[in-house]
């Protein structure tokens, strides 16, 4: 890597930011699409392992679609301001958003969301699949999921589990676990799962359903113990860790996924073009390697499959939220 290469890499991005910032609302002709750089809104704070997915995707989608894709963080609670920005943008296919399960959790969790996920947005493709990891404090006698379950049932109300906040996937996975097994444990929310590891190593937090990216540094040298992953098949970065399903909790499936969405009014031919480029980008070995390092796997889909997927996820979490009486005000 030298400076010249760096400049070459930066120059188009700098140039295109000019275009992106001055949206030209010409009627988008599907055959000439894409005629200018595409803006990919990432509705969460920059940094952290999850940002990596969005930025890697932007880079390689740009290569397969033939125009630069510029990632832009528009932060705000629950990803709502960023998503709403895309909902309200011109439906020309030049403004897209990548969202996580908060997309379909928010409508049940929050009193109001300014847009309707199923009416105002359409899925272009799925992006990835990454399981959560059930990790326990090293002081816990349990070495397997079965032992953990026995231990948890024998100590009702004594265990704590941490999460990245109310209504986040680690929280809901914990609630779903409690609902399906009858285990009684206290939920302790943090501002990010990474924050809770100090308390887990000190034994103050007994277990957590952590993102794989968050867990990796701590499980690698056994400072916390991974017992199971929450996907239905084993995860590549945890080949020796069983799935919850294998370990005895049949059908337990929690995924920290992302989907690429566009405003609902974007014409189908344009969506088809982006989808085609997405499928190509997600099949690249570079993308696979980059995702794998943070415990994610690229998963592409057709728009219809993507729509069915988020619908089923919506139903799944709606039930967990309602049964657990989890509601924000």
């Amino acid at each position: 890597m030298n400076t010249a290469k760096l400049i070459r890499r930066l120059a188009p991005a700098l140039l295109c930011s000019l275009f992106v910032a001055a949206p030209i609302t010409l009627p988008a002709a599907a055959q000439s699409y894409p005629a200018k750089p595409i803006k990919l809104v990432l509705p969460y704070a920059p940094g952290g392992a999850t940002d990596v997915i969005g930025r890697t995707l932007a880079q390689y989608l740009g290569e397969t679609i033939g125009q630069p894709v510029v990632a832009e963080n528009r932060t705000g609670s629950g990803g709502i301001p960023g998503t709403d920005y895309v909902v309200r943008s011109a439906p020309d296919g030049y403004t897209l958003v990548m969202m996580d399960p908060a997309l379909i959790i928010n409508p049940t969790l929050l009193p109001s969301v300014p847009f309707d996920v199923f009416k105002d947005l359409q899925v272009v493709s799925r992006v990835n699949s990454s399981p959560l990891v059930l990790v326990v404090t090293p002081g816990m006698p349990a070495k397997t999921y079965a032992e953990f379950l026995t231990y948890a049932k024998a100590n009702p109300g004594k265990l704590n589990f941490s999460s990245a906040g109310i209504g986040t996937t680690p929280h809901l996975a914990g609630e779903m676990f409690k609902q399906q097994t009858g285990v009684d444990a206290v939920h302790v929310p943090y501002r990010g799962i990474g924050q809770s590891y100090t308390d887990m190593m000190a034994g103050k937090i007994s277990f957590a359903f952590s993102s794989a990216a968050g867990a990796l540094p701590f499980t690698k040298d056994e400072r916390v113990r991974p017992l199971a992953v929450t996907s239905l098949k084993r995860a590549a970065i945890y080949p020796n860790t069983p799935t919850m399903d294998e370990a005895g909790l049949k059908g337990f499936d929690v995924d920290l996924w992302y989907v690429l969405l566009a405003p609902a009014a974007v014409p189908a031919p344009i969506v088809a073009k982006i989808n085609e480029a997405m499928v190509k980008a997600l099949a690249l070995p570079e993308v696979k390697t980059a995702f794998a390092k943070i415990g994610a796997e690229p998963v592409s889909s057709t728009p219809a499959e993507g729509a069915a997927f988020i619908k089923s996820e919506y139903e799944k979490w709606k039930k967990v939220l309602t049964d657990g009486n989890i509601k924000e005000q």
Binding site: A13, L14, S17, L18, A21, A22, P23, V70, N73, R74
Partner: peptide, 14 residues
């Protein structure tokens, strides 16, 4: 801010 640092600010009226 916009060209060099690429902050998401609109330059001209929308």
């Amino acid at each position: 801010f916009v060209v060099a640092l690429r902050l998401p600010l609109p330059i001209w009226p929308s």
